[in-house]
Design a binder for these strands. Sequence first.
DNA 1: TTGACATGCAACCAAATGGTTGCATATTAG
DNA 2: CTAATATGCAACCATTTGGTTGCATGTCAA
Lengths: 104, 104
Amino acid sequence: MDAVFRALADPSRRRLLDSLHAKNGQTLAALCEQMDMTRQAVTKHLTILEGANLVATIRKGREKEHYLNPVPINDIAERWIGKYEKGRLKALGDLKKSLEGEEP
Amino acid sequence: MDAVFRALADPSRRRLLDSLHAKNGQTLAALCEQMDMTRQAVTKHLTILEGANLVATIRKGREKEHYLNPVPINDIAERWIGKYEKGRLKALGDLKKSLEGEEP
DNA sequence: TTGACATGCAACCAAATGGTTGCATATTAG
DNA sequence: CTAATATGCAACCATTTGGTTGCATGTCAA
């Protein structure tokens, strides 16, 4: 879970996920074309995404295909974000109530 | 949006959000008691959470109350995560299909 | 009014992060 | 076979990050 949050923290990595979401199974070279940084830097980002289980790769000859794995994102939505959505109205109400009681 | 993702990347900050979710409107000192680091470090984390609009604060005399703002989390769920949930089955299917075609 | 308490601010530090360059290896096309 | 292509690995670097210590300021209570 922590690895997923940390992986999502970088805009370049979110962009890679977006790219794979638009066109799944892209090769490293294909992803690099869109990324305004060296291939090696992209590799590092992809390694982090793999570590968070957000991307799976398959070697095909001398190429490497990258596939999006949306499951960890879904997990975060269910196990973490869901909790906050439930208390949403309550939280805003708490703040409002405290503001009313300001300068007592 | 980027600020929210980066704010959520640190486990201490997620813990602070959890604490405020459990008990809203806590003071800085109260939050520090649970955090195994100096008050100043906690302040830094809270500043980052405020910068991401995840926490709102009100000064009450010499104390400062901290309130959770769940709206940015909700925004991420709707505008970012939602996109991935839709393509979920498709993405897994892509990967499976590519695996079947391995070593061609 | 004075002392205790809650918070603010700033300098400093080690480690992590995001990027680079340079070179090595494996595969495919001609 | 050989040359071009696709990726891997490692050392290095600047900046950011997460934390500390030390001191300053503002507010409440006795």
